[in-house]
């Protein structure tokens, strides 16, 4: 059963949280994966990708602090049964997506070793692992926002 304790959270309508989640995912893909795939000398593109990474990181933190992010972290004793149910579904989907990404990476590494495709060096691997970790942090809140069926403005 819920109690009256309130967390610090940034109240965000579903539409804004959805838009933010798109920004975060695109920034992760472009910033971190781009940085991993390209070997860049310091220059304009390097600075641009760093800015994109920072946008993604800031967006992920904002999403984490939003009402959706806080719902994804709240103890089950402070969720009602419907909230617990939709959060569990969000975590199951996050888990499935992260496992798929992990298996895709395993297959790529195996295939790339045999076929001579691109393989990440230590720096690129660190970038990709960071993107993976940030995606796993942001996805539950993003999924909760995208699946929120509440009419706009409902308390």
């Amino acid at each position: 059963m819920r109690n009256a304790t309130r967390d610090f959270q940034i109240m965000m309508p579903a539409s804004r949280a959805r838009a933010l989640s798109v920004v975060v995912i695109l920034s992760l893909l472009v910033g971190y994966i781009g940085m991993a795939a390209l070997t860049l000398e310091p220059g304009p593109l390097d600075i641009a990708l760093t800015i994109v990474k920072l946008v993604g990181l800031t967006g992920a933190i904002l999403l984490f602090l939003s009402n959706y992010g806080q719902m994804s972290q709240r103890p089950e004793s402070r969720l009602d049964e419907r909230e617990a149910q939709i959060r569990n579904r969000a975590y199951v989907l996050t888990h499935q997506m992260m496992v798929c990404a992990l298996f895709a990476a395993f297959f790529w590494v195996e295939a790339a070793g045999k076929l001579g495709w691109w393989l990440p060096d230590a720096r690129a691997a660190a970038e990709m692992i960071t993107a993976y970790a940030m995606a796993s942090m942001a996805l539950p809140a993003a999924i909760l926002a995208w699946r929120d069926q509440s009419p706009a403005g409902e308390a």
Binding site: R2, D80, E81, E83, Q149, S150, E154, A155
Partner: peptide, 14 residues
């Protein structure tokens, strides 16, 4: 002991 939103979902049969 639930969120008011949950009452809304119950009212709408969702």
């Amino acid at each position: 002991g639930v969120n008011p939103q949950t009452i809304g979902f119950l009212e709408r049969g969702e």
